[in-house]
Design a protein around this nucleic acid. Structure first.
Lengths: 227, 227
DNA sequence: CCAAAAGTGTTCCGTCTACACCCATGG
DNA sequence: CCATGGGTGTAGACGGAACACTTTTGG
């Protein structure tokens, strides 16, 4: 590529991944201990440097895949973090990306290899640099988004019970909601379909299984719900 | 600074400024024609490269000041834009920042010097690269924010009439609202104070002047209004 | 038979919306 | 005297929040 902007200073650009996972009814966060200096041994989001020939989002996906084996999931930009001294190792501008997955859907062997763990969101250790700030911003974003977009379904199997759906919802917003009100709202969303199947695993009585109908959702347009 | 991350690729990092201005009851956008290749002559946001020893936000402020003489205003990050080919001149990751000002509060001599103009938001020309995308994202953000934060007051003098306030509000959200409902909401916000002064300039009858009380606002906590 | 989860309606209250007329004044 | 912008109230619709009991069945 011809370079038009000679004489300008170049910087390291990194991506950091904020991966929220759902497990045991709670939100978790994927973190690991830094293995490189400076700051080796500190808890940290994992990330990597953006290469000259890859998009920011590509870089985020590459890094996610490398550390977790996860691919093809929805990742969303949280923002750029660019204070001069945010990383004592060098001047690094970092772009944070976030994703939301179901912990049990993925294999943990890679995680072990890199020493990554699912930490409890409401009991995080001290974090490296400005990572706490990234996490907070992302969490805010997530909570806002859940009232306009159907995030919860990323965390559930194709068929799920309403109680499971409610558990996911509560984990994200961070507090409990009334069961009857919740189910009333669901009933009005025609893109959440009741099937004739019954789940007998999680309860003795058995609960109806539901399904998220993406086509109905996409074609609907009107989504002023809270889920 | 010692460099810990040797061997990683460095990129150009730029900031682009999305400056919304309010004038004649409408939202405007500050744009100019590119003076450097590639793409010289195309309409563009103005921006600049981030230096190794300045924060992203510092860079945004420096560039804003350089082109407009404006300083000490609230700027907010819109996001990072980092597709590989977004700028044919070189690999550039750009972080967009946005601000909102009142056009008449500032001197235009610098703008003329750099060939910047206040373009009509709803009648923008073709824009360079991904700048249209930046603008749209920023506008969305702005419209969301106006329901949680008192943006409008940046666009008004210290003392303003309710009609002026309503004009600003309508310009941002992009449609008209009912006068009585609007004023009802205002009455419930105790951080918008009626003064005993009357403005006789804009109407024959005269309109009461109001003031935004920042202290009352900050100490209030509860701001579930729409303004 | 009992523990555990599923399922189900109603009432109240606050908020948003739609809507139309009189007032004061300068020119 | 009239054109211009300033100022005011009410009624209905709607949506969110609070609230408790019955059902089924595996162990």
């Amino acid at each position: 590529m011809t370079e038009f902007y000679n004489g300008e200073e170049k910087l390291l650009v990194a991506v950091d991944s904020i991966i929220f996972g759902f497990k045991d009814g709670k939100l978790k966060l994927l973190i690991g201990k830094r293995i490189v200096e400076p700051g080796a041994g500190m808890w940290s989001l994992y990330g990597g440097f953006v290469r000259i020939n890859e998009d920011l989002e590509e870089a985020a996906r590459r890094v996610l895949y490398q550390y977790t084996g996860i691919k093809d999931i929805f990742m969303q930009q949280v923002g750029a973090f660019g204070k001069v001294n945010r990383d004592p190792g060098d001047r690094v501008v970092s772009v944070a990306y976030c994703a939301l997955i179901n912990v049990d859907d993925y294999d943990t062997s890679l995680l072990d290899k890199y020493g990554l763990i699912w930490a409890d969101l409401d009991n995080l250790p001290e974090m490296w640099g400005d990572h706490k700030e990234m996490i907070n911003k992302s969490l805010n974003q997530l909570r806002h988004q859940i009232s306009t977009e159907p995030l919860s379904f990323n965390l559930l199997p194709d068929l799920f019970t309403l109680t499971q759906l409610q558990n996911v919802y509560e984990a994200i917003i961070g507090h409990e909601v009334d069961k009857r009100n919740f189910r009333k709202r669901i009933k009005q969303m025609d893109f959440i379909e009741k099937t004739s199947l019954i789940d007998k695993v999680t309860s003795k009585r058995g609960a109806s299984l539901y399904r998220f109908n993406k086509k109905a959702y996409d074609s609907d347009g009107e989504h002023s719900f809270k889920l």
